[in-house]
Simulated scan of single mutants.
Amino acid sequence: MTTEKQNDKVWFVTGASKGLGADLVQRLIGEGYLVAATSRNKLALINLIGEQENFLPLMMDVTSNADVKNAVQQAITRFGRIDVVVNNAGYSQIGAIEELTPEEVQKNFDVNVFGPLHVIRNVAPHLRAQGSGHIFNIASIGGFVGNFPAFGIYCATKFAMAGYTEALAVELAPFGIHTTLIYPGYFRTNFLEKDSAMVPAHPISAYANVREQEAQHLDEINGNQPNDSKKAATVFIALSKQEQPPVHFFMGLGASDFVKAKLSVIEQALIDHAELAESTAITY
């Protein structure tokens, strides 16, 4: 058991000006942790927390590798190290696969997939050098279950994060670095508000199921999510204190229901088609 005080740890949190990130940073600061928090809007961070000795607000565009490298270096210069990284920055691009433009798709991947990779690429050398650390990659339940019409591209970005996080976990384990992939269910944040979730620029009217799902999320689920993001902050801190934290963590009431439903479908598909699937074996 380490003798290091837990609140001596330095946290680096992206997308920290609202939602889960904002609640996490506020909780961390309140408990005396050292926190570097990033946003495209530095003033929003200052307005959220104020000027505090243990808080470093940083303006950072997660899609810019140069921006990320600079922010990581500023955090290390200020606090001497980084211990816990939370890749939280991201947004939901709504729209049917057919109707989304290449630019809409690319932007969602730039922020949700390549942005966290910039952070990992720039922070990993420091974590390896100190022989410790914990990376949280915030996916979504949509990074495990993708059958949401209107959210295919967003789910694809989170599936991508899930894929490289599984590899990252085994790559970094020999260096004493933990990696946890968080799959949040529905949390009551501004994630589904109209200034956060992006709707398609050129909707196709034929996709009635897509419009129905879009309206359900923006008008019915939004504001009625069953989970409290302030309680999620407590969960992150608890996970960061575990000696052997999980690689996969499904967070929030209802998340496990989605997981069990998909596992059931996959298991049944394996059973129903086993003979045909294995008919490709080379015989001698």
Results as ranks from 00 to 15, higher is better:
E31T: 07
F175Y: 14
E278V: 14
E4H: 00
V85S: 11
P200W: 12
S240E: 04
L24H: 09
Q73S: 14
A167H: 11
S240Q: 03
E53S: 12
G252D: 00
E98M: 02
H126L: 08
S240A: 15
V170M: 14
Y91R: 07
M60K: 03
G95K: 07
S205N: 09
N190W: 00
K260H: 07
T14C: 11
A22Y: 10
V86W: 06
F236S: 06
K230E: 12
V72G: 02
H118M: 05
I141E: 03
I94S: 08
T63L: 02
G185R: 00
A44Y: 03
D110H: 03
L100R: 07
A89G: 04
V35K: 01
T280C: 13
K230Q: 11
L28C: 07
Y186A: 12
W11E: 06
T3L: 04
A37S: 08
V235E: 13
G146I: 08
I49C: 05
S240W: 01
I76Q: 01
A255Q: 14
E104T: 06
E212D: 15
L276T: 15
P200Q: 03
V210G: 03
S39F: 04
L20A: 11
A208K: 10
L276A: 15
E51L: 01
N190V: 01
H217Q: 15
G15H: 04
G254I: 13
F136P: 09
H134G: 06
K260V: 06
P116F: 01
T179Y: 04
Q244M: 11
D83N: 15
R81H: 15
A269M: 00
T101A: 08
T157K: 14
I76P: 02
A162V: 08
L168D: 12
A208R: 13
D110M: 07
L172H: 05
Y33F: 14
V105I: 15
A36L: 10
L28Y: 11
